[in-house]
C-alpha cells in the first residue's frame, strides 16, 4: 500500500532528520515506529502527507507518487491519509460533529463547508464513525469540553471519516493515562483490521507497541536500525535503537502490566464487596 524508497530529509539548519529510509507497508498492517526523541519519527510520517517536504526519495501510496504532487493532486492524496495527533489537534472551539465533518473537507467545496451544509452521505459517514468510537452522545459538545480519551476518539473519527487507505498516527497516547492509552491503541488496531487500513504509529512506549502492533520499525538518527516482529525486539535491538541501558524490565513489562491490571481489578472487587454491607447498613 505504502512504499517509501530512499527517503531523506535535511532541515534548513543542516541537520539530517531522515537518511535514506526505505520501507513498504502492505494494506491492513499496523506498524509501530519507535526510536529516541529526535530520531525522525514525526518527520517520517509528516513526509508521507507532505506536511513536511522531503529532500529526496520517493513515497508511493498505491500507484500515486506523493512527492511530485502539487495543489489539487496533493489534496486528493491527503484525503486518502488519515492523521491522528499527539495533542489531538482538534479545533477546540468547534463541536465534535464539526470536527468529525472536517475530515470531509477534501471532498466538498468551500461554501458547503463554510455554511456547514455537508451532503447527507457525509453526515451518514460521520454518525457511523462516531458510533464506532462510542461518542454518539457527545455530538453537539464542543471539543474542549471532552476528556483526553474522548478527544482522541474524535481525532480517530475525523481520520476515519476521510475513508483513508492509511492512517498516520503521531504519538496517539503520549498525553493519556495508561488505561486510556491501551483503549486508544486497541481502538486504532481494531479499526485498521475492520477496514484493512495500513497504519504507521509513532510511539514512545515500547511495551505498549509490543502489545498491539504487528511489526516494529526502529529509527535512530534518521536511519532504520530495526525492522521485525514485536517478539524479535530484544535487548540487542533496543540497544541498537536507544543505546546502552538495562532493558530487561522493559521487555518483561508487558506481562507485568497485565498482572498489575488484573491485581487492580481484584482490589476494586474486594473494595466493592466490603463497601456493600456498609452501604446497606447506612440505608
Amino acid at each position: 500500500m505504502l512504499t517509501i524508497a530512499g527517503l531523506s530529509k535535511r532541515y534548513a539548519k543542516g541537520d539530517k532528520a531522515l537518511d535514506d529510509v526505505s520501507l513498504g507497508i502492505p494494506a491492513g498492517q499496523v506498524v509501530g515506529l519507535i526510536g529516541p526523541s529526535g530520531a525522525g519519527k514525526s518527520t517520517l510520517i509528516r513526509c508521507v502527507n507532505r506536511l513536511v517536504e522531503p529532500t529526496s526519495g520517493s513515497i508511493r501510496l498505491g500507484d500515486t507518487e506523493i512527492t511530485r504532487l502539487g495543489g489539487a493532486g496533493l489534496r486528493r492524496a491527503r484525503r486518502r491519509m488519515g492523521m491522528i495527533f499527539q495533542e489531538y489537534a482538534l479545533v477546540e472551539r468547534l463541536t465534535v460533529m464539526e470536527n468529525v465533518l472536517s475530515g470531509r473537507l477534501g471532498y466538498v467545496g468551500f461554501w458547503r463547508a463554510f455554511l456547514r451544509r455537508f451532503p447527507q452521505a457525509d453526515m451518514d459517514r460521520a454518525f457511523a464513525v462516531l458510533e464506532r468510537v462510542g461518542l454518539l452522545d457527545h455530538v453537539d459538545k464542543r471539543a474542549d469540553e471532552l476528556s483526553g480519551g474522548q478527544r482522541q476518539r474524535v481525532g480517530i473519527a475525523r481520520a476515519l471519516v476521510q475513508e483513508p487507505d492509511i492512517l498516520l498516527v503521531d504519538e496517539p497516547t503520549a498525553s493519556l493515562d495508561p488505561k486510556t492509552s491501551r483503549q486508544i491503541m486497541r481502538l486504532i488496531v481494531e479499526v485498521c483490521a475492520e477496514r484493512q487500513l495500513a497504519a504507521i504509529v509513532n510511539i514512545h512506549d515500547v511495551a505498549l507497541a509490543q502489545m498491539f502492533v504487528q511489526r516494529i520499525i526502529g529509527l535512530k538518527a534518521g536511519r532504520v536500525v530495526f525492522d521485525g516482529s514485536p517478539e524479535a525486539l530484544d535487548t540487542a535491538a533496543l540497544t541498537a535503537i536507544y543505546g546502552e541501558e538495562d532493558w530487561s524490565r522493559t521487555i518483561r513489562e508487558v506481562e507485568d502490566d497485565a498482572a498489575e491490571e488484573a491485581a487492580a481489578q481484584d482490589a476494586v472487587r474486594v473494595l466493592r464487596a466490603q463497601a456493600t454491607p456498609a452501604a446497606a447498613r447506612a440505608l
Partner: peptide, 11 residues
C-alpha cells in the same frame, strides 16, 4: 497544530 490537522485532511 489545529491548522496542520485541517490541512492534513486535504482541505
Amino acid at each position: 497544530g489545529q491548522v496542520e490537522a485541517i490541512r492534513a485532511t486535504g482541505a
